[in-house]
């Protein structure tokens, strides 16, 4: 079988990373297995559920259906970047306050998608938040508290 390795250099959560990756390695597996950033979760590995959502050059992407080698020269953000210190990011805080998570498995991908939504639309409404998060499955919450959290986080982040 053919296989090959490739040198890539990229920025992950603000840090420069250089790595050699196998062709078939997905970006999600690269983050999880090579970099130990296990906050990026795998739910379906076919791009359907969104648990693996990360930001690539500021845009939400399914990291299970992007190759690590395709992330060469890209700037990545994963959930681990949201609150590097003790204080949580306002979006995480709003999720906490509103109980916008139960099992927590969709949460990292959901947070990054929500961050993108708020950055694109700082005055986001309930309806816009609901439509925006329809990209990501949550099996626990029925989505309502996530909508609440996104709208409140947007308010906080405007201030």
């Amino acid at each position: 079988m053919n296989t090959s390795s490739h040198e890539i250099s990229l920025t992950v959560n603000g840090r420069a990373v250089e790595a050699t990756v196998e062709s078939r390695l997905s970006l999600a597996d690269f983050l999880r297995r090579e970099l130990g950033l296990v906050g990026t979760h795998l739910g379906c590995e076919q791009g359907a559920c969104g648990a693996c959502t990360v930001l690539v050059d500021g845009r939400s992407v399914r990291s299970c259906i992007m190759l690590a080698v395709q992330a060469d020269e890209c700037e990545l953000r994963t959930v681990e970047s949201l609150a590097p210190g003790l204080a949580m990011h306002p979006l995480q805080d709003a999720f906490h306050k509103h109980q916008a998570l139960q099992c927590g498995f969709c949460t990292p991908g959901m947070l990054l998608r929500c961050l993108e939504l708020i950055e694109e639309n700082p005055d986001i409404t309930d309806e816009e938040a609901r439509e925006g998060i329809s990209s990501n499955s949550c099996r626990c919450t029925g989505y309502q508290y996530i909508v609440d959290a996104v709208v409140e986080a947007a308010e906080q982040m405007r201030q």
């Binding site: 997905s26 791009g47 259906i65 395709q70």
Partner: peptide, 25 residues
């Protein structure tokens, strides 16, 4: 391979197994 949003899921499902991918993205 361009966006890969159709092809890579098929490959993860092992419903497609090309020996080479030519990335034009």
């Amino acid at each position: 391979l361009a966006g890969g949003q159709s092809l890579l899921p098929l490959m993860n499902l092992r419903l497609a197994s090309p020996a080479f991918l030519v990335d034009i993205s």
